[in-house]
């Protein structure tokens, strides 16, 4: 217990003020002494339990790595990188946003959200102009995840338990609906073959789908709590590997094409989102305790624990070039963590 507190203080001293300075939103001062650290930590803890802004639910780097787009109940905002200064808000009609993804060529953004228990909305926007191109509202509850198949096809997953495939050029009706999850679908992940989709959600299953036939290939059920996120491991030869993060405090590594759970790492706190370093050597997880855990996927060990914020860290991304970590979460927090 004592060692946990010590590490928290040190991290708070080193990293928390840098978020504040970079975002320009914070009230924290440059730490000159340990007294400052104590005051800042206390303030930070209090603010975690009194939200003044909606939580950042998802964030992504622009293709050139110079901007960050982040979504929340307050809409879609663009920030500079690495300063994380809020630059502009892109008007959207969709409310309660949960996800944002750039298209493969970087010219479009897909965002998903909706009115809880009423509808699920997906909007396609141009980047960087932010003009609305298309809007889909066929889901009956909020959209939690989007994944680009290519420039014209988009997959969406919703709390309504369905996954839909859209042809962005043809119609506002889905061209395929995948049914099988018994509860909300929270995460999507495409294999490189662009034919195999992995999905996961509250029903604790990781499902493998053939997009050509729309058939479920297999369901893998080792998780014992809802699954929050999926991420495809880059830079590996052989069978593709994905990672899943779940409420059972594990990150599990799978070879979905053969239906095998290879291994898993157990964390000290529940991971909410995961992102791979670009060489696939490590995976970073943002957790409910506001910390980032860096995991070695081969040794299944946590190699680093970094304090990022107070409250729940809902989203994490790794910068495409400098490898620093973007984290967003409770109380509108968005910050940069350097490993």
């Amino acid at each position: 217990m004592i060692s946990l507190q010590i590490s928290l203080v040190l991290v708070a001293t080193i990293t928390t003020p840098s978020f504040a300075q970079q975002t320009g939103r914070g009230t924290l001062k440059q730490p000159q002494s340990t007294d400052v650290a104590q005051v800042d930590a206390e303030r930070s803890l209090k603010s975690a339990r009194i939200a003044t802004e909606s939580p950042i639910t998802a964030a992504a780097f622009s293709p050139d790595g110079k901007s960050v787009v982040a979504v929340s109940q307050s809409g879609l905002h663009v920030y500079s990188w690495p300063a994380l200064k809020r630059q502009r808000m892109i008007e959207t009609s969709a409310s309660n946003l949960h996800c944002v993804e750039f298209s493969p060529n970087g010219k479009h953004i897909a965002i998903g959200g909706g009115n809880p228990s009423e509808d699920g909305i997906v909007e396609l926007l141009s980047w960087p102009a932010g003009e609305l191109l298309t809007r889909f509202d066929d889901h009956s509850d909020s959209v939690r995840s989007v994944a680009w198949l290519n420039e014209t096809r988009l997959l969406t997953a919703s709390i309504d338990r369905e996954i839909k495939l859209w042809n962005l050029e043809m119609s506002t009706n889905p061209i395929l609906t995948l049914e099988g999850h018994s509860r909300s679908v929270h995460a999507l992940c495409l294999l490189k073959d662009n034919k195999t989709l992995i999905s996961a959600g509250i029903d604790q299953s990781v499902r493998v789908w053939d997009l050509k036939s729309g058939k479920l290939i297999r369901s893998m059920n080792q998780h014992i709590k809802p699954i929050h996120a999926l991420a495809m491991r880059p830079g590996v030869d052989g069978l593709p590997m994905i990672a899943s993060a779940a409420g059972d405090r594990t990150i599990r590594f799978w070879q979905p094409t053969i239906g095998r759970m290879v291994r898993y790492a157990r964390l000290d706190a529940e991971p909410l989102d995961i992102a791979w370093l670009h060489d696939g050597s490590r995976i970073v997880a943002s957790c409910v305790d506001g910390q980032i855990r860096v995991v070695d996927p081969d040794e299944v060990k946590v190699t680093q624990t970094l304090h990022a914020m107070s409250g729940w860290a809902y989203t994490v991304a790794v910068h495409p070039e400098d490898g620093s970590i973007l984290v967003g979460g409770s109380n509108g927090h968005l910050g940069r963590v350097i490993r």
Binding site: A51, T57, Q73, R144, Y314
Partner: peptide, 30 residues
């Protein structure tokens, strides 16, 4: 955590409190 944090905090709408799911459901607006 269930009310405020889970599922990206979807049950509480800090931007528009009257639109919060935690209110709309039991009042059967939805």
């Amino acid at each position: 955590e269930a009310v405020v944090r889970q599922i990206n905090g979807r049950r509480v709408n800090l931007s528009n409190p009257e639109e919060s799911l935690i209110l709309l459901k039991p009042a059967e607006y939805v």
